[in-house]
């Protein structure tokens, strides 16, 4: 079922930094939130930023229905995200949401979530919902070093946390696909979800494919509208160009041309 898209003001109820360039924004609404699927995103208006004309797409990191709060997990990469990081508690933020198609939610299955960089943003809410669905959730977070492994405690609440770092400062040493979870009996998982740099997702998807397990990935690309009106955000799929903002951002990796190589 398609949920109605909304454009509404939220006010910042909390903001905290996870490291120098990554922060979490908690945005509170006065009314009840609509049903939101893990993997969906928002388009945030960035005020008073002369070089930020368009809204910024950001994944929904978590939803707290009791308090009507949507959290975002943001990495500062340019003016828009920097302006967002400077906002204060009580400041207003206008968002269009919930946008796009989210992840397929398994029930009572064993699943693996893999993420790296700010790609881990949508995985927290996904893990929460999968746990609610009585899934057994393994979460593999990857980074260059221990400094890149963020919100480990939050993820632990919803599943069994696995970690890999390139320098071995936390968890296993190596790239994400070198983690031991991929070496023994991958078939125990009903689905692998991944979100992060495209190369990482492609590598994970290849392993999933080899093990004949469905895998879903969440894509990021440049968007102008976020609602399917401009056709700027296309990705090559088996069915030709499709808009990431409406047909995605979550895709089954078997549908994506760049994931077949």
């Amino acid at each position: 079922m398609e949920v109605r898209k909304l454009i509404e003001d939220f006010s910042i109820s909390n903001k905290y930094f996870l490291n120098a360039e990554t922060f979490v924004l908690e945005l509170k609404h006065t009314n009840m939130l609509p049903p939101i699927a893990p993997g969906q995103f928002v388009e945030v208006a960035v005020e008073n930023a002369p070089h930020t004309f368009l809204r910024r797409p950001l994944s929904i990191h978590h939803v707290d229905y009791e308090n009507n709060i949507i959290s975002l997990f943001v990495k500062i990469v340019g003016e828009g995200t920097r302006k967002l990081s400077l906002l204060q508690i009580q400041d207003k933020v206008n968002m269009i949401y919930p946008l796009g198609r989210g992840f397929t939610l398994e029930h009572k299955k064993k699943v693996l979530l893999t993420g790296g960089g700010c790609g881990i943003a949508p995985l927290l809410y996904l893990a929460d919902k999968l746990k609610e669905n009585l899934c057994e959730v393994d979460i593999l977070l990857a980074g260059k070093s221990s400094n890149d492994i963020l919100r480990a405690d939050a993820y632990k609440k919803f599943g069994h946390l696995l970690i890999t770092t390139e320098d071995g400062s936390l968890g296993e040493k190596g790239l994400i696909i070198q983690h031991s979870v991929f070496k023994n009996n991958l078939q125990k998982y009903a689905r692998i979800y991944s979100c992060g740099p495209e190369r990482m997702m492609q590598a994970v998807a290849r392993l999933a494919k080899a093990a004949k397990i469905p895998s879903e990935v969440s894509l990021e690309n440049t968007m102008a509208c976020g609602i399917g009106a401009c056709l700027c955000c296309v990705v090559n799929t088996k069915n030709g160009h499709q808009c990431v903002c409406t047909e995605g951002p979550v895709f089954d990796s078997s549908e994506l041309e760049d994931f077949q190589k």
Binding site: F53, T222, C230, L231, C232, V234
Partner: peptide, 23 residues
């Protein structure tokens, strides 16, 4: 028409460039 290849959009000062190509 499939339109042009991605990337088809670039944000610019107070505007944007598009190259959707009539998809």
């Amino acid at each position: 028409r499939e339109g042009n290849a991605y990337p088809r959009m670039a944000e610019t000062p107070m505007g944007m460039l598009n190259a959707v190509g009539l998809q």
